Measured scan of single mutants.
Amino acid sequence: TTQFTVHSPEQAEQWKEYAKQKGLEVHVQKKNGTWHVTIH
Results as ranks from 00 to 15, higher is better:
residue 17 E to T: 10
residue 18 Y to V: 03
residue 14 Q to A: 14
residue 29 Q to V: 15
residue 28 V to Q: 01
residue 14 Q to T: 07
residue 1 T to F: 14
residue 23 G to D: 04
residue 35 W to V: 02
residue 29 Q to L: 12
residue 14 Q to R: 13
residue 36 H to D: 05
residue 1 T to L: 13
residue 31 K to L: 14
residue 3 Q to W: 13
residue 25 E to C: 14
residue 8 S to F: 06
residue 35 W to H: 02
residue 37 V to W: 02
residue 32 N to M: 05
residue 21 Q to I: 11
residue 2 T to L: 15
residue 28 V to I: 14
residue 11 Q to A: 14
residue 23 G to M: 04
residue 37 V to E: 00
residue 1 T to M: 12
residue 25 E to R: 13
residue 26 V to F: 12
residue 2 T to S: 10
residue 28 V to S: 02
residue 14 Q to D: 05
residue 10 E to R: 07
residue 10 E to Q: 09
residue 39 I to W: 03
residue 24 L to P: 01
residue 35 W to A: 00
residue 5 T to R: 08
residue 14 Q to M: 14
residue 32 N to S: 05
residue 28 V to F: 07
residue 13 E to S: 06
residue 37 V to S: 00
residue 18 Y to A: 03
residue 32 N to F: 06
residue 15 W to H: 02
residue 20 K to W: 07
residue 21 Q to P: 02
residue 34 T to Q: 12
residue 14 Q to N: 07
residue 38 T to D: 02
residue 31 K to R: 12
residue 38 T to E: 05
residue 4 F to T: 03
residue 15 W to T: 01
residue 19 A to P: 00
residue 27 H to Y: 11
residue 14 Q to L: 13
residue 39 I to D: 00
residue 40 H to C: 12
residue 37 V to C: 00
residue 31 K to Q: 11
residue 32 N to Y: 06
residue 30 K to R: 10
residue 5 T to E: 11
residue 13 E to G: 04
residue 8 S to H: 05
residue 36 H to N: 06
residue 11 Q to D: 10
residue 5 T to G: 03
residue 22 K to P: 03
residue 36 H to F: 14
residue 34 T to V: 15
residue 1 T to D: 07
residue 6 V to R: 01
residue 36 H to M: 13
residue 18 Y to G: 01
residue 25 E to Y: 13
residue 35 W to P: 00
residue 6 V to M: 03
residue 21 Q to S: 13
residue 35 W to T: 01
residue 28 V to C: 00
residue 15 W to N: 00
residue 27 H to E: 11
residue 27 H to P: 00
residue 15 W to F: 05
residue 13 E to F: 08
residue 2 T to P: 04
residue 6 V to S: 03
residue 9 P to C: 14
residue 5 T to P: 04
residue 16 K to C: 13
residue 11 Q to T: 06
residue 39 I to F: 06
residue 38 T to G: 01
residue 4 F to G: 02
residue 34 T to W: 10
residue 12 A to M: 07
residue 24 L to N: 02
residue 23 G to A: 04
residue 39 I to K: 00
residue 12 A to R: 02
residue 40 H to V: 14
residue 2 T to G: 06
residue 12 A to F: 05
residue 21 Q to A: 12
residue 9 P to E: 15
residue 3 Q to A: 09
residue 15 W to E: 01
residue 1 T to K: 11
residue 5 T to N: 06
residue 18 Y to T: 03
residue 21 Q to L: 12
residue 1 T to V: 14
residue 33 G to M: 05
residue 25 E to L: 12
residue 3 Q to V: 12
residue 35 W to D: 00
residue 7 H to L: 10
residue 39 I to P: 00
residue 15 W to L: 08
residue 1 T to S: 10
residue 33 G to Q: 05
